[in-house]
């Protein structure tokens, strides 16, 4: 474990007419963004990924500044080396599972690779799905493909947005085991968005609470 925080976040993100302020540092392991729905957890995740521009603040990952409002730094999402597993997955419907998995890998620096396609398939148990289309996958299968696609991108940080919320109990257990293995075997820092105490207690080493604060923007 590195003594430097892998990720440091100190931002204010506008969401509708509210300003969500959060400040945390994440080291190795899983940091949970925890709070009720509407608290702006996804907005914070999007800000880290570069999909939403914070109103102010600073985000740094492994010593590299991703965003700094004061210095006018705002790296494009493709330059942030963050793997994202979206709540709605966003698998590419016109590509096979294989081409979804390889989309990011083909664009990534080979030195940044965590896994090969074969290793990812074995790791996630998705080898049999490679020639299928996303629309033919079950919820748990699609979730694992989305995780695989983000891992094969060679990320320095994995952002997971409610990865368990749409799954039944058996599938939830499967995905939780996958997340634990990413934490333990790949030693990849993760930020996990969740609104459930049991998930957070089991998976996270740090918890950042986001509450709905009515603060005029």
């Amino acid at each position: 474990m590195s003594p430097d925080p892998a990720l440091s976040v100190d931002i204010a993100v506008r969401r509708g007419d509210r300003l969500i302020e959060t400040r945390f540092a994440a080291t190795a392991g899983i940091t949970a963004l925890f709070g009720p729905s509407g608290a702006g957890k996804t907005s914070v995740l999007d800000a880290i990924a570069g999909l939403v521009r914070p109103a102010r603040g600073r985000i740094a990952l492994g010593g590299e500044v991703l965003f700094d409002a004061a210095r006018g730094i705002d790296l494009a999402p493709e330059k942030r080396h963050c793997g994202v597993v979206f709540q709605d997955l966003r698998l590419f419907p016109h590509r096979t599972v294989r081409d979804n998995l390889l989309y990011g890998q083909r664009l990534a620096d080979p030195a940044a690779q965590l896994l090969s396609l074969d290793e990812a398939c074995a790791f996630l148990g998705i080898g049999a799905l490679l020639d299928r289309r996303p629309r033919t996958l079950s919820g748990g299968e699609a979730q694992r493909v989305a995780i695989g696609r983000a891992l094969l991108r060679g990320p320095r940080l994995l952002l997971l947005d409610e990865p368990l919320s749409s799954l039944d109990a058996a599938r939830r257990e499967e995905i939780m085991v996958v997340i634990e293995r990413i934490r333990d075997q790949l030693a990849l820092p993760m930020v996990l968005v969740s609104h459930r105490v049991d998930e957070v207690e089991r998976l996270a080493s740090e918890v950042v609470s986001l509450d709905v604060l009515a603060e005029p923007a």
């Binding site: 999909l51 999402p77 590419f92 989309y103 664009l107 696609r149």
Partner: peptide, 25 residues
């Protein structure tokens, strides 16, 4: 349009994201 933002997080610039996701769809 959120498919394009997914492509961006996977390392594609805005034009590549457009050409590989939105255009074929």
């Amino acid at each position: 349009p959120r498919l394009e933002s997914a492509a961006r997080t996977l390392g594609a610039g805005p034009w590549r994201a457009f050409a590989t996701v939105t255009l074929p769809l």
